[in-house]
Write a protein that binds this DNA or RNA. Structure first.
Length: 416
DNA sequence: CCTCCACCGGAACGTGAGGAGT
DNA sequence: ACTCCTCACGTTCCGGTGGAGG
């Protein structure tokens, strides 16, 4: 990354960079580090060079990206102009301490006035209301205000493309040909290796001038990272020897996510503390693993759409009644009953099979298509999350809460 | 070897919500 | 305020199918 970006220090335009890697592989951290270094070095050598960070998960439309960029540059230009005015004023008032390149004090006065006019014209872009092209040209003028190299860092760029297409990227990558004073370069950070498939070929080729892939960490690397952090976070000897390797191993299974590894270690620590243990041991890590997984499931289930919740509830009821092999037909029957009970729309079986597949994808249930010969072909469904907690989460939903009364009624179905 | 169950899952289409342009 | 577009969610229709049992 640094070797690509150094050209900015020579006043050249760095190639656009695309960075790929799964979550928790250090893409953002590395990119931020490098850009900080770049900015500080550029100050040292007095080469104008700036890095702008934008997280596209938050700022996910073309308008917002442009507006945010425009505003930060307007702000910078303001500061720049104010500084310059102050500098010139001191020259005007205090004699010729600094060589400004102006031959008369009148010229200095004119320059100050010009700068003040400029300052007055710098109007920030409102959050909403302007046509996109006006925001674009405002941004354009703000960037082109004076000579500099600008690196725009777009984190989670795949989210931006997914939500609002590649127009933003197209416009940004095309800007260089019209800019007079400044140069911009784009640094895209993506979780998704295949996101360029959705891009216009022109954007794709200009954006992907340089590509960097961050491979997932392996268990050894994770162990190093954890070791490092643990020295800061824990008192010496607070961790038993197998804690860190175990955390590393668990996280390595989950695609080498460092964030996950750190989460695990932290949660293990918290659990040990809560249990008033003197040291963090292997069992705390295992508990932490379970807890994190449970939290994830609870969150997923809680935010499920109502229809999916009803379907899931139907599956839980069947499971509760010890039904040998749950298949789509039965789920659908119970589901219909539940819908009647809570006065919800009844979807078709076709749709319900899709919902079941979605639950499968989320890892909440496990669905396998099996053929039972003479007795047809169906999905065999089993729950793959703790039944008690899941049920509790479902019942806490305002629409499903009332279903508790319906339960014996559904159970009666099995008796008959 | 054939049949036929009970559902799978693709395709095309309908609908309403929300965003963008005008 | 209006139109146009896209998207998520659903529906309808229907061809497809693995394998137990005849």
């Amino acid at each position: 990354m640094a070797t690509i970006l150094v050209s900015a220090l020579r006043g050249e335009t760095p190639s656009n960079i695309l960075i790929y890697g799964k979550t928790g592989t250090g893409k953002t951290a590395s990119a931020k580090f490098v850009s900080k270094e770049l900015e500080s070095t550029s100050r040292k050598y007095e080469v104008p060079c700036e890095v702008e960070y934008i997280n596209c998960e938050v700022t996910d439309t073309q308008y917002r990206v442009l507006a945010q960029l425009a505003n930060t540059f307007i702000e910078k230009n303001r500061a720049h102009a104010e500084e310059r005015i102050a500098e010139l004023e001191s020259v005007r008032d205090g004699g010729d301490a600094v060589d400004t390149g102006f031959d008369s004090t009148a010229a200095v006065g004119d320059r100050i006035e010009a700068l003040e006019d400029e300052l007055a014209e710098m109007e920030p872009v409102p959050m909403t209301g302007w046509p996109t092209d006006r925001v674009y040209s405002t941004f354009f003028d703000a960037v082109d205000h004076h000579e500099r190299v600008v690196v725009i860092m777009l984190d989670e760029i795949d989210k931006l493309v997914e939500k609002s297409g590649d127009d933003t990227l197209y416009n940004l990558s095309r800007m260089n040909s019209d800019l007079v004073n400044s140069r911009i370069s784009i640094m895209g950070i993506s979780n998704d290796l295949k996101f360029t498939d959705f891009l216009d070929p022109r954007v794709k080729s200009s954006l992907g001038e340089e590509e960097i892939v961050f491979p997932p960490y392996d268990a050894n690397q994770l162990r190093d990272i954890l070791q490092h952090r643990a020295e800061v976070a824990f008192k010496p000897a607070a961790l038993t020897d197998d804690v860190i390797p175990l955390c590393a191993a668990f996280a390595a299974q989950e695609h080498g996510d460092a964030r996950r590894a750190l989460d695990l270690l932290r949660t293990a620590g918290e659990l040990a503390e809560r249990g008033q243990a003197d040291t963090v041991g292997e069992e705390h890590v295992r508990k932490a693993q379970d807890k994190i997984e449970l939290d994830r499931v609870v969150e997923v289930v809680r935010t499920l759409p109502t229809q999916s919740k009803i379907v899931l509830f139907a599956i839980i009821l069947l499971e509760n009644n010890g039904v040998h092999s749950i298949n789509t037909g039965e789920v659908f029957n119970i589901y219909k009953r539940l819908c009647d009970e809570i006065d919800a729309d009844v979807l078709t079986q076709r749709r319900v099979t899709d919902l079941i597949s979605e639950l499968d994808m989320l890892g909440i249930v496990n669905a396998v298509v099996v053929s039972k010969g003479r007795y047809g072909r169906t999905k065999e469904i089993s729950l793959s999350v703790p039944i008690g907690e899941t049920k509790a989460v479902l019942l806490s939903d305002s629409r499903l809460g009332s279903v508790e009364d319906a339960e014996p009624f559904v159970q009666a179905r099995f008796d008959s």
